[in-house]
Design a protein around this nucleic acid. Structure first.
Length: 245
RNA sequence: GCCAUUGCUUU
């Protein structure tokens, strides 16, 4: 069986997907098991290579036999549908695997499902799924990041800000890039006041900005015509020992 | 050291 792994790996790495499919079919027909992580790598490789059709084919071969449900493989498949912008299929697929929501690692699959709705522009479905993720697993930083991105791109900045504050109040290990995402998407003529409010909020919470935050805020103060504040940022960067770029 | 899966930011 070690030999089969090497063979599969060889086909995968060199993009011999036709041979790969044949080999997998033969293995499975002869009831030879390969480890699930190998299947995961194969699917991921197809997807990174833009060969979603092959991935789909392999997935069907795998589950026709006896592979048990595996959240990593679910996530990989969802990601493939997203990458090839096949949202309809992604949603069908996701609905189909929801019954496995108690498996280990399914929060990752659900977060990926959230991203499907967001990219498909179905923000209300995304909001509903967000609630469900919170019930099943407790939403994490990526859940927040995804829903905030969705609300921002559908121009629902007020709600996005609510989620942002919620995240900041509830996440001990906050990732500043989520804050930056919100600040940046409001850094325009219409919405700059949200950036200013959010910036004040993180300062109040003693959250440390990074150089990207400062870059965005300089832009924001341009829109609000408060250039003196932009210059004040330079001093603050010294305080935080952040190098200007 | 790498060793299958999700989001994201200024210039």
């Amino acid at each position: 069986f070690v030999t089969f792994n090497i063979l599969l790996k060889y086909y995968t790495e060199n993009g011999y997907y036709g041979k790969l499919v044949d080999a997998l079919t033969k293995l499975l027909n002869n009831n030879i098991q390969v480890s699930e992580s190998i299947y995961g790598s194969i699917l991921d490789s197809c997807i990174k290579n833009g060969s979603m059709d092959i991935a789909h084919k392999i997935y069907k071969i795998l589950f026709k036999v006896n592979l048990h449900a595996n959240s990593i493989i679910f996530t990989t498949m969802l990601k493939g549908y997203i990458k090839s912008e096949r949202y309809k299929e992604a949603i069908d697929f996701f609905n189909d695997i929801k019954k496995h929501h108690k498996l280990n690692g399914m929060i990752i699959t659900y977060n990926c499902g959230l991203d499907v709705f967001v990219r498909n522009g179905d923000i209300d479905a995304a909001l509903e799924l967000f609630k469900q993720i919170d019930e099943y697993y407790t939403t994490d930083l990526i859940s927040y990041s995804t829903i905030i991105k969705g609300l921002c791109t559908s121009n629902r900045k007020e709600e996005a800000f609510v989620y942002l504050k919620d995240m900041i109040n509830n996440s001990p290990d906050l990732d500043i890039s989520v804050v930056n995402l919100f600040l940046d998407s409001c850094a325009n003529k219409q919405n700059f006041h949200y950036s200013i409010k959010a910036y004040q909020f993180i300062m109040m919470k003693n959250i440390k900005p990074n150089e990207v935050t400062f870059g965005i805020m300089v832009k924001v103060y341009g829109y609000s015509k408060e250039l003196h504040k932009a210059f004040d940022l330079l001093d603050l960067m010294n305080v935080y020992e952040i190098k200007p770029s």
